[in-house]
Design a binder for these strands. Structure first.
Lengths: 122, 122
DNA sequence: CTGAATCCCTGCCGATACTG
DNA sequence: CAGTATCGGCAGGGATTCAG
């Protein structure tokens, strides 16, 4: 996924004058965000982490129907995009804490906006 | 796509106490919105329509790299979800206008929220 | 406990050709 | 002008199994 319309200033959603919209590239801010949220379960993982840091198995328990692979995929993707911070504790058994970064926390309002629209009757 | 966490009150993103998150169903408002925005090009089509109503070929011209099939898919999906209104004029040649519904217009702030997060440095 | 590796299956999207 | 029909490729995601 990716959007682009060349020369779109940050708060400039409704302003693109007539520029043709070219191919989708992950340069468009809207697409960057959608890419960060993309994938099934992603928003649920984020919401879980909005409540505080969690271990791998905490997340497994909170999201029972999601497989190891997918959870791992989501966490690594979220870590790669700077949404989640991964904290590895030394010792045995291995303990890892997943926490939202400040950037990740700022997804709260975004999810809220998504929620609000979806909750309203069409 | 679909989210659900049972008993989530409308403005209640950060409030789910401990309820386990079950299978994804299109009941969760967040998922409803993401479903409405889902699919490549969708947000660009919406943004184009945020500027005013457009004909089919207007959209084709504004989004040059998208195929007939995909544009048709997007428009019918958006129409089905109540985001877009389709206005068929009688006569020849056939003239059709696509316009955002009020509900569709309310996606403006949502896209803005997505834009803002994506535009900010991680 | 916290993952990584593999396999297969499904659904999306792009291209092309054709119709009312 | 405004679509529909069809086909194929490819990536996403689920289940299972193995590893540090």
């Amino acid at each position: 996924m990716a959007h682009q319309t060349v020369g779109h200033p940050p708060p400039g959603l409704p302003d693109h004058p007539h520029t043709t919209a070219p191919a989708p590239t992950p340069t468009c801010p809207v697409e960057i965000t959608l890419a960060a949220l993309s994938g099934r379960w992603t928003t649920l993982v984020i919401r879980e982490l909005l409540r505080g840091s969690r271990s791998y198995s905490d997340l497994r328990r909170a999201l029972p129907t999601l497989s190891d692979k997918v959870l791992t995929d989501r966490l690594s993707h979220l870590t790669a995009t700077g949404v989640v911070h991964r904290d590895r504790h030394p010792g045995w058994p291995p303990r890892v804490r997943y926490t939202l970064t400040p950037h990740g926390h700022r997804l709260g309002p975004v999810l809220q906006a998504l929620w609000d629209w979806g909750a309203r009757d069409g």
